[in-house]
Write a protein that binds this DNA or RNA. Structure first.
Lengths: 210, 210
DNA sequence: CTACAATCCGACCGACCGTTCGTAAATATA
DNA sequence: TATATTTACGAACGGTCGGTCGGATTGTAG
């Protein structure tokens, strides 16, 4: 520790940087993220960052991991406490919305931001983000498949389609919520639609039996 | 015209710049857009751009207008040729997907990219983008309301919710399509879901009567 | 205490950014 | 044709960027 006590060495610095970088990345973008910005926000020198990551890109990849870890702890893990089946699938959706509405990250959804940012820019980062999305959809589809296996879906409801549906609602909610004027209207429409679709996809008589 | 014949003066330069800037903005982002990049792509000097727009921000705002004009001509106008009602609402969705799949803009959807880019960055541009989204949702909600007025929706289907739903499908399709590995899977899931939801929201017996 | 590796800093680099300026060419006006 | 205005250019400016380097500071092992 330095004389003024502000700085923390080693591993703790590393995690503090990642935490701060994730926050800033949701605002400025993952690529628009400035190393000086990160360093200044922590009272650390910019050149010191290169002792932990050999380039900006390496830090960016680490930030993606950080975002995934946060997502796991704050969204997925709590949702998995809900019993398997369609309840768990919708719990994931609910947790996702709650996480966003809690404004944990000031710039909204890191993954959505980063994905749109690197849409058309081939490279390691884009591939990693694509992998994240694939993993996420595999996870959602798995949950929907579980629900189908338990016979909790109305006949004719396709599990993959349902998973895609949950994802589309989530993405759209994340996109529109920051729009100040539009937020209340769309939040209302979203809830109405959500109720409707839950009724459409879930067989309530089956759920009541349990 | 200059001696080497490359350059075009006045209004034609202006529109050429906007066209090129829109293309580049979908790739590099609206803020990541570089004036040197635009100028070089057209064989024009960077400083010459300031004869048409007094700052980068002014050009960015003009690019938003350009994007809106393109969207109007390529998506909205053709869809409005379809008879009013639920058919027209879904025609808008279909045209939107078709426009995206035609890869007119290499970086995907300009508005989605720009919206996520400026999510958390207050200012004139963010406000303009928010206004665009509000206008768009008003437009969609109006179409859904028309369909409801014509009695084409199944009982219990909320028009605002339906409009939100069409939007969420569009946003999610635009987001996932560029992900190479995932695209076919999600395109398939999207079509299945789309068919299902059309069946859910539209009363086919009513449509058949016309 | 000594030695060594990890960590951190300030100074500095070249590249690129948006912007300005003086000037020249093209166009509009008379 | 003569004049005024718009449009375009090259050069240069201050500023920020990611990244490098030598040296100082720290924690740890011997």
């Amino acid at each position: 520790m330095t004389q003024d006590g502000r700085l923390i060495r080693g591993e703790r610095t590393r995690s503090a940087v990642l935490e701060q970088a994730l926050v800033l990345a949701t605002v400025s973008g993952l690529d628009g993220l400035s190393l000086s910005q990160v360093a200044d926000a922590l009272g650390v020198s910019k050149s010191g960052l290169f002792a932990h990551w050999r380039s900006k890109e390496a830090l960016q990849l680490a930030v993606i991991d950080q975002a995934r870890a946060q997502w796991r702890d704050r969204v997925i893990r709590p949702a998995l406490e809900v019993p398997a089946g369609v309840r768990r699938l919708w719990a994931v959706h609910d947790r996702r919305i709650a996480f966003y509405e809690a404004r944990v990250l000031p710039g909204g959804c890191f993954f959505a931001n980063a994905h749109f940012e690197f849409n058309a820019r081939p490279g390691v980062i884009r591939d990693r983000l694509a992998g994240e999305l694939t993993d996420w959809m595999t996870f959602l589809t798995g949950l929907a498949g579980e629900a189908a296996g338990l016979g909790e879906l109305r006949p004719g409801v396709d599990p993959a389609g349902l998973a895609y549906h949950v994802e589309s609602l989530g993405v759209c909610a994340v996109m529109q919520a920051p729009v100040v004027g539009a937020a209340p209207t769309y939040a209302q429409a979203r809830r109405q639609l959500l109720e409707h679709l839950r009724a459409v996809t879930i067989d309530p008589t089956i759920l009541e039996q349990k």
